[in-house]
């Protein structure tokens, strides 16, 4: 990182100056470009979705997505610059998602960003897509007070993060086995409820009694880590035992009890951290943040601390580049620049 800092040292701006960043994103099936001013001010946010193209295949086809990203690259960049009313020469930095995601797709905008960096002699910033989804909250709710806790929960992540300010975060805990969304998916498939598992379980749970079955909550002592594989095994054992005994299984009660066990595990670490870290806000991000039971339970528990729970609005839950630009701004202030040799990392961690 040191070399990059020196390379641009004469032109780097500070926090009190206006900083314009072009951000690019192509980690899955959206080709996106955005221009952000000073991080959270979104001047343009262009997203070109390929959802229709992939529909007939029943999922995103990586090679088709990559080909489409290349075709859409210049049009989305042009539109973003036009909407923001700025030129390449006005940019202070260029950012792109470096992972996680589909490597072929990631490489299109990452290569474009590298070329812009070299051509204009401005810093290149590689952004973690998951961090982007967290910062989508800060774009939507700029009033969020710091310090804050963020629970990032999706099919690939279960991370509890502490933010002193928006310049960086500390990972307090993460899952030691399955991610929360992964547990939902696995149990949903096991129960024949379909994919994605989160909404399927939530729907089945609506009419169920969440106290019907007492599933275990992982106790990892004082750590803020999570574990869901024991719960998963326990659900499977329960179903197999009941079947052996010839008992009929009440799927609604089972789904509700399982969901509550996941919610309790997530909530107990979060609330323990709320006690310890004296935060001003709590933020959810990731697909599982859409779970209504989790939201209502946390809202109820956070009331006594007088804390508001934030979660991203639906329109910022889909992939976009504005959220990448928001993260990039804080990396810029930290002079956290990427070398031109940076590669895409399909399984990049926070």
């Amino acid at each position: 990182m040191g070399v990059e800092k020196l390379k641009y040292k004469d032109k780097l701006k500070n926090k009190n100056e206006d900083i314009y960043i072009l951000a690019l994103e192509s980690s899955c099936d959206e080709t996106a470009a955005a221009v952000n001013k000073n991080g959270l001010e979104v001047m343009a946010n262009v997203v070109s979705s390929q959802v229709e193209i992939h529909k007939k295949f029943g999922g995103v086809v990586p090679e088709i997505a990559s080909r489409k990203h290349l075709e859409l690259l210049l049009p989305v960049i042009d539109q973003a610059l036009a909407e923001a009313g700025i030129k390449f020469e006005d940019l202070d930095a260029v950012a792109a998602t470096s992972g996680p995601g589909l490597v072929g797709g990631l490489l299109v905008t990452l290569t474009a960003a590298k070329t812009i960096s070299l051509a204009l002699n401005i810093p290149l910033i590689g952004v973690n897509h998951i961090a982007g989804h967290i910062y989508a909250n800060f774009i939507a709710n700029p009033e969020i007070k710091k310090p804050l806790l963020c629970l990032t929960i999706s099919g690939g992540h279960t991370d509890l993060l502490y933010f002193e300010d928006l310049r960086g975060y500390q990972i307090l805990g993460r899952t030691i086995d399955d991610a929360a969304g992964e547990a939902f998916d696995k149990i949903s498939r096991f129960l024949g409820l379909g994919y994605p598992g989160g909404p399927a379980i939530e729907k089945a749970a609506q009419t169920g009694n969440e106290e019907a079955i007492d599933f275990p909550r992982a106790d990892l002592g004082k750590s803020y880590n999570f574990s869901f594989s024991g719960l998963k095994t326990s659900v499977m054992n329960y179903v197999n035992n009941e079947k052996q005994r010839g008992n009929e299984i009440n799927t609604s009660d089972l789904a509700a009890s399982f969901q509550k066990a996941v919610v309790d595990s997530l909530a107990s670490n979060l609330l323990q951290a709320v006690e310890e870290y004296k935060v001003e806000s709590v933020v959810l991000s990731g697909g599982v943040a859409a779970n209504q039971r989790l939201r209502s339970y946390l809202e109820e528990k956070l009331e006594k601390y007088n804390l508001k729970l934030y979660y991203p609005p639906l329109e910022l839950c889909t992939d976009n580049a504005a959220m990448i630009g928001a993260v990039a701004y804080y990396q810029y202030l930290e002079r956290d620049f990427a070398p031109l040799s940076i590669s895409a990392d399909p399984s990049l961690k926070l």
Binding site: L70, T111, A119, L120
Partner: peptide, 19 residues
């Protein structure tokens, strides 16, 4: 290589566009 081709062509497109 599909990926290799996209790397070179992306670079050329961007240079063409910027300058």
């Amino acid at each position: 290589s599909f990926t290799g081709l996209r790397i070179g062509i992306t670079t050329a497109k961007m240079l063409g566009r910027i300058f």
